[in-house]
Design a binder for these strands. Structure first.
Lengths: 210, 210
DNA sequence: CGAAGGTGAGAACGTTCGTTCTCGCTTGCG
DNA sequence: CGCAAGCGAGAACGAACGTTCTCACCTTCG
């Protein structure tokens, strides 16, 4: 039923929806969410208020959709970087910080959308707070998988996650991208230390010859 | 002139000012700044609007005063913890993460005021963004001093700062205080690695004996 | 006592918010 | 052609915002 030619408006609807999400994301990200009214979004996107509320029944709903879309983008960035490397688990972990470095270099970088939104709305919008919490938890879970592949203890994943979070806020506030470099260096130290202390003296347990 | 008995209102003024700052801090921190109007602050503090605007000519001015006060509290916490320990530079650095651990355990903990405020207002209030940037820079400068005392390379200070920032946001969003423990463990690894690789084989280049 | 000035409670101001409604206009279909 | 439905532009709504003003009251000092 969905892909029939029944409703002429349907094909455009998805593009309009995406256009709204892109515009809202840009405005919310640059100015904060409370500071961007629906009128501003209407003017910037060129989409009428009627259609805005038709596609997103409330502002909170729209904010959630923006966060959901950002989550997909973030996951794609991470997975692309993880898949692009040598396949070595250690390199896959470090690839996360290369993603950060490229991101921090963007002109309009102003920190992590989820962290910013949590600070602004986390105390009053429980549904949004939960959404943010779940996103961060899923990122940490992905890190835990990558860490497990290296054979390092699970605690390393938490440490690497903290480095990634800290790099984002530090880069945002300082206005420089140095933090990505520093976080990557710290991650390298933590990973190598974890790997060294995990299989310490018994070196040649050469079960994996690859 | 200030400490004379000339003006009867002066003695109370400072207490009222502090009372306003404490109340505003609590409301802003728990709900976000835009979500707390001056009426809410009037009702919660019991101070009339007239006196509020008498002591703080605008809301932005009040926000800046709240941040300024938080900065002093944070610095006191850090300096107290740094001074309380053994005096060993390594322990002084780790004391910072003990401060975080105690802080995260507080019931109303909701992350770092400066990070939260930067996310909400940093894009539209340049003066506040600058104030936040300066606070973070001064914390990093203090860390750099402590790192220098250990003899470790300066880059360690940046890494430790990133850990502290990341622990704050991670703890806030996750709602647990595990991040303080993980950050402390990571900091220990980074510090010890930096100290070990800094004076590796060539030990006695004793130009600075003291 | 009586005039002056500062105060608290809260109304009022103009703006902006999120959301809904009105109203011409277009458009697809019988 | 005629009509029902959907659309964009924007007015309108009640609420809340930051800020100022009114006014009765209280204090203080000559």
């Amino acid at each position: 039923m969905p892909p029939t030619t029944r409703n002429r408006t349907t094909p455009q609807t998805e593009q309009i929806r995406e256009h709204i999400l892109i515009t809202a994301d840009r405005l919310y990200y640059s100015r904060g969410i409370n500071a961007v009214g629906m009128d501003a979004l209407r003017n910037e996107s060129g989409v009428s208020l009627k259609r805005l509320y038709q596609l997103f029944p409330s502002k909170e709903n729209l904010v959630e959709a923006v966060l959901h879309r950002r989550r997909g983008i973030w996951n794609s960035l991470v997975e692309t970087a993880v898949a692009a490397g040598s396949g070595e688990p250690r390199d896959q972990l470090l690839a996360v910080y290369d993603v950060l470095a490229r991101w921090f270099d963007e002109d309009d970088f102003r920190g992590c959308v989820f962290i910013n939104t949590f600070g602004e709305l986390g105390g009053t919008a429980p549904h949004i707070a939960t959404l943010i919490r779940e996103h961060k938890a899923s990122f940490q879970a992905r890190l835990a998988e990558l860490v497990a592949n290296t054979g390092a203890p699970a605690a390393l994943a938490h440490q690497l996650a903290i480095l990634a979070e800290g790099a984002q806020t530090t880069a945002a506030i300082a206005g420089t991208n140095d933090a990505a470099h520093h976080a990557r260096a710290a991650a390298t130290t933590l990973i190598d230390t974890a790997l060294a202390t995990n299989r310490p003296q018994a070196g040649p347990s050469a079960t994996t010859t690859g």
